[in-house]
Simulated assay, not measured.
Amino acid sequence: MKFLDNEDQLAGVLGHEIAHADRRHTSRQLQQQYGISLLLSVLLGENPGQLAQIATGLGQLKFSRDFEREADEYSVVYLNGTNYYACDGAAGFFIKAEAQGQSGTPEFLSTHPNPGSRIQDIQTKADQLGCRNRNTSNSTLTELKSLL
């Protein structure tokens, strides 16, 4: 929360995380990691010992670059629907992260796209939807940050 500069960034980050749930990235990742047949056997009670292993794996689950790109795209779509927040709010978060040197790992070695690519993709989608330049009040975020 303290890292964020405005409510558009907060809304963008929240939209990104909601997109992971809405697009079922966790379920899809588990299917890839454990296989559908194993998951079904656990759900049907045929292999209860695997449940602990899957639960442990959930804590270590990392989304793929494709899932991250999809969540970024949907954060723009979701914020466009609000008619309130600048729909490229998540880009502001990545601009700040990049300025602070948080893009050191080459993209091909990372589970996440590099911030520069993410900024460009988010802003391109926002331009397509025509929702980049909305003026948002930051009073709620300012109040929230003062409580932290």
Results as ranks from 00 to 15, higher is better:
residue 30 L to K: 00
residue 133 N to W: 04
residue 130 G to V: 11
residue 20 H to F: 01
residue 126 A to R: 03
residue 112 H to F: 08
residue 58 L to P: 04
residue 32 Q to C: 00
residue 4 L to N: 02
residue 110 S to V: 03
residue 55 A to T: 13
residue 64 S to A: 05
residue 36 I to H: 01
residue 74 Y to S: 03
residue 130 G to W: 07
residue 137 S to F: 02
residue 26 T to P: 01
residue 53 Q to N: 13
residue 108 F to D: 09
residue 93 F to P: 00
residue 46 E to K: 10
residue 74 Y to I: 12
residue 63 F to N: 12
residue 80 N to Y: 11
residue 11 A to L: 07
residue 3 F to E: 14
residue 109 L to D: 01
residue 81 G to L: 07
residue 109 L to N: 11
residue 64 S to Q: 06
residue 64 S to K: 11
residue 113 P to L: 04
residue 115 P to Y: 09
residue 110 S to F: 08
residue 53 Q to S: 12
residue 115 P to K: 05
residue 63 F to K: 10
residue 52 A to S: 13
residue 54 I to L: 12
residue 68 E to G: 10
residue 139 S to P: 01
residue 49 G to M: 10
residue 113 P to G: 06
residue 9 Q to P: 10
residue 82 T to M: 04
residue 19 A to R: 10
residue 18 I to Q: 04
residue 32 Q to E: 14
residue 27 S to T: 09
residue 22 D to Y: 12
residue 59 G to M: 13
residue 135 N to R: 09
residue 30 L to V: 03
residue 30 L to E: 09
residue 31 Q to H: 00
residue 1 M to K: 11
residue 8 D to Y: 03
residue 46 E to N: 12
residue 78 Y to N: 03
residue 106 P to S: 10
residue 148 L to W: 05
residue 147 L to M: 10
residue 96 K to A: 08
residue 133 N to T: 12
residue 146 S to R: 14
residue 73 E to G: 04
residue 143 E to K: 06
residue 34 Y to Q: 07
residue 112 H to P: 02
residue 6 N to L: 07
residue 143 E to R: 11
residue 114 N to P: 08
residue 43 L to Q: 11
residue 96 K to R: 15
residue 9 Q to R: 07
residue 122 I to Y: 05
residue 36 I to A: 12
residue 136 T to S: 15
residue 95 I to A: 08
residue 26 T to A: 15
residue 34 Y to F: 15
residue 133 N to D: 15
residue 109 L to S: 12
residue 128 Q to W: 03
residue 128 Q to N: 12
residue 97 A to K: 14
residue 98 E to K: 14
residue 33 Q to Y: 00
residue 45 G to A: 11
residue 59 G to C: 01
residue 117 S to K: 15
residue 53 Q to R: 13
residue 98 E to R: 14
residue 42 V to G: 07
residue 112 H to R: 02
residue 123 Q to L: 01
residue 48 P to L: 07
residue 53 Q to V: 11
residue 135 N to E: 15
residue 47 N to A: 13
residue 17 E to A: 01
residue 63 F to I: 05
residue 26 T to F: 00
residue 123 Q to E: 14
residue 17 E to K: 06
residue 105 T to G: 00
residue 101 G to V: 07
residue 85 Y to N: 08
residue 7 E to K: 01
residue 124 T to H: 07
residue 19 A to L: 02
residue 120 Q to R: 15
residue 99 A to W: 06
residue 39 L to S: 04
residue 136 T to A: 13
residue 6 N to Q: 09
residue 14 L to N: 06
residue 115 P to R: 07
residue 108 F to E: 14
residue 83 N to Q: 15
residue 18 I to Y: 08
residue 147 L to Y: 06
residue 20 H to E: 09
residue 84 Y to P: 01
residue 11 A to P: 07
residue 54 I to F: 10
residue 147 L to P: 00
residue 81 G to M: 05
residue 127 D to H: 06
residue 104 G to F: 02
residue 53 Q to F: 08
residue 143 E to P: 00
residue 63 F to C: 07
residue 9 Q to K: 02
residue 16 H to V: 05
residue 65 R to Y: 04
residue 139 S to E: 15
residue 96 K to H: 10
residue 75 S to H: 06
residue 90 A to V: 15
residue 84 Y to D: 05
residue 52 A to T: 12
residue 107 E to N: 03
residue 138 N to E: 08
residue 84 Y to H: 13
residue 127 D to V: 11
residue 14 L to H: 03
residue 121 D to F: 10
residue 70 E to R: 03
residue 136 T to H: 04
residue 88 D to M: 03
residue 62 K to Y: 10
residue 61 L to D: 05
residue 51 L to C: 01
residue 73 E to L: 13
residue 127 D to L: 13
